[in-house]
Design a protein around this nucleic acid. Structure first.
Lengths: 209, 209
DNA sequence: TAGAGATAGTGATATTTATAACAAAGGGGG
DNA sequence: CCCCCTTTGTTATAAATATCACTATCTCTA
């Protein structure tokens, strides 16, 4: 089922196109050109067409793309037709913020479990999900069919939690801790290092200004 | 002061090297090879040397790099020797989480202002910074010499806030809203779309598994 | 002090990714 | 029903980025 080799940059852009198309649909727009999509996200129209071309032909020459249809195709391509079950490990400030973030639910991501070691946090209700003790990690991953683990624990614990998530069978991990994590090759990993983003801005402010 | 053209991927990796070196220094390690750095962050040693080579020669052949010295150089390269003043716009869950995030302060990023429209949030103290009303944005940017604005407001307001930040004189914006923002060419912009990260995982889970 | 072993720095090469340009094809008007 | 206009899909080209292989040079030991 491997779709040859798709550049990661392409996948990221497809995600953004899908977000924009979703907005266009809400606005009642029926047809859109690659040029218009391109302008709305700040890339070239050739880039848009090239990205789509990896997966097939979705438009009509001389006309453009039907918003609804293209959005449907992108939804399938991105795997957003399925429902993904998430567990958040770490119910601190960041974990709680993510648990309450609307943007996840809206796009088929269902937060099914939130875990923490701190007894003061266990039992708290976050958008309908009750914080469970960390001990129950393995049991909950299995019971609630968790596909993706989100790590928002301190760096020192991140690898240990990762190992437990992997052993329990999650297929992917989204890591918010500032820690390089090791996972087996069949487990997907993405890192969101909040400080790295600021460092990159710092670099560019220092050099281009 | 432009340092020719440095790939963004290089800058991101340098940020990560600096984090690892910081850990090594804490652990009392004095010398490290490109191979060891590479292994610890999951890239090739040639990549590490190439990234550093953009900026000069920092090592000793046959020996490696002195941890403390290389970290100092990376700190300068990344502009982390200066203190950057941040303003967070939007004191909701995400904004609050970022305001309380230790990782920023530790690396020379100083949160100097937090703003919100919601009267219920104004006056709250977040790690020593009191939430101010949004009206005061322009005044605070100037008074507190804000360099970087962090946007954690709903998508619908994000462009408006951006325009105000730019007009008030910030040099860079870190955008957490799921909204493509327009900025003048001399203002730096980085986007952190939390949902996009999950979408990329969704894509890869769907296609490579 | 010479030689062995290790590791940085670098130029050449390969690969990946983006850009540009154009041919193919659909729709609407006359 | 045909031709013109538009916009896609695609091929060719260019640019950016990463990998590889090699040379230079340092330290340590005998």
């Amino acid at each position: 089922m491997k779709a040859y080799k798709i550049p990661e940059a392409t996948v990221i852009r497809l995600s953004i196109y899908s977000r924009q198309l979703s907005n266009l649909r809400k606005a009642g727009v029926e047809t859109v050109s690659s040029e218009e999509i391109a302008n709305s996200v700040g890339v070239s129209s050739a880039q848009v067409r090239k990205d789509l071309a990896y997966f097939g032909e979705f438009g009509t020459r001389g006309v453009g793309y039907r918003v609804n249809e293209l959005l449907g195709n992108l939804t399938n391509i991105l795997g957003l037709n399925k429902e993904w079950n998430l567990a958040i490990i770490g119910a601190g400030k960041l974990g709680s913020a993510l648990a309450l973030y609307e943007g996840f639910r809206q796009r088929g991501f269902s937060i099914r479990a939130i875990l923490d070691v701190d007894v003061k946090r266990i039992g708290i209700d976050l958008a309908g999900v009750v914080v469970d003790p960390l001990d129950k990690l393995e049991a909950l991953v299995q019971e609630r069919d968790i596909n993706i683990g989100i790590i928002t624990v301190p760096a020192a614990e991140a690898q240990n939690i990762t190992d437990r998530l992997v052993a329990a069978g999650v297929g992917a991990i989204l890591n918010f801790s500032p820690q390089v994590l090791r996972v087996p090759p069949d487990v997907l990993l993405r890192n969101v290092d909040l400080a790295v983003n600021l460092k990159v801005l710092s670099f560019n402010l220092s050099h281009n200004h």
